[in-house]
């Protein structure tokens, strides 16, 4: 039982990762692919933040009376990763807008057919 409680966070995170990853590789619609990519990345962020938590700790900002702080390093890494993630999302979406303009569709199989027809 303890083993399950100690690993519950990790397992949920993994379910989320799998869900996100599945959306990315199975979706035919490009917008949905990008949503999946975001879900995938957010679940990785959860993995990092989970490992930074110390039971009974507080947020890593010095306050009087606090004895135990959670680990600030994963927070820093994930701040960076979030910003990297939004940058990738913006580029992906801009590509989708252009693909829509060039092909008239954002469904992967449809523009593949158009390319093959050439």
């Amino acid at each position: 039982m303890n083993f399950i409680l100690d690993h519950y966070n990790y397992w949920i995170t993994i379910i989320l990762m799998m869900a996100g990853f599945y959306i990315v590789i199975s979706a035919n619609n490009l917008v949905k692919k990008i949503v999946g990519l975001n879900v995938f990345q957010v679940s990785v962020f959860l993995l990092y933040i989970t490992m930074g938590k110390v039971s009974g700790g507080t947020a890593p900002i010095v306050v009087d009376g606090a004895t135990q702080y959670s680990n600030p390093l994963p927070h820093v890494l994930i701040l960076t990763a979030i910003v990297v993630g939004v940058a990738t999302t913006a580029v992906g979406l801009a590509l989708i807008v252009r693909i829509k303009g060039a092909y008239g569709t954002v469904e992967e199989n449809e523009f593949k057919d158009q390319d093959d027809a050439i």
Partner: peptide, 11 residues
């Protein structure tokens, strides 16, 4: 076609 290539590369 460079757009779809870039998108696939991005994903």
């Amino acid at each position: 076609r460079c757009l779809t290539a870039a998108f696939r590369y991005l994903v």
